[in-house]
């Protein structure tokens, strides 16, 4: 699953550690989500969306579903 967390984080000038502190997770978790190695649970995805004041769909996109819809 792709996401725009790295971009949103950069816009705010936050490091991975800063975002991790906001979310209450490890810096490695943020890195794994950003690089697509790990897909967050629904509660964590909601927490990420809340912090960036966006909807989940604005941040996460499933390329497989998008391609299937096209």
């Amino acid at each position: 699953m792709e996401n725009s967390i790295r971009v949103l984080r950069a816009e705010r000038g936050w490091s991975q550690a800063t975002l991790a502190d906001h979310l209450g997770v490890s810096r490695q978790s943020v890195n794994a989500i950003e690089t697509g190695k790990y897909d967050p649970s629904l509660p964590l995805a909601f927490a990420i969306a809340r912090i960036f004041e966006k909807s989940i769909e604005d941040i996460f996109s499933d390329q497989t579903l998008t391609k299937a819809a096209e």
């Binding site: 997770v25 490890s26 490695q28 794994a32």
Partner: peptide
Amino acid sequence: ETDEYSRLF
């Protein structure tokens, strides 16, 4: 108690 990714790890 740890976060979900760390737990998995």
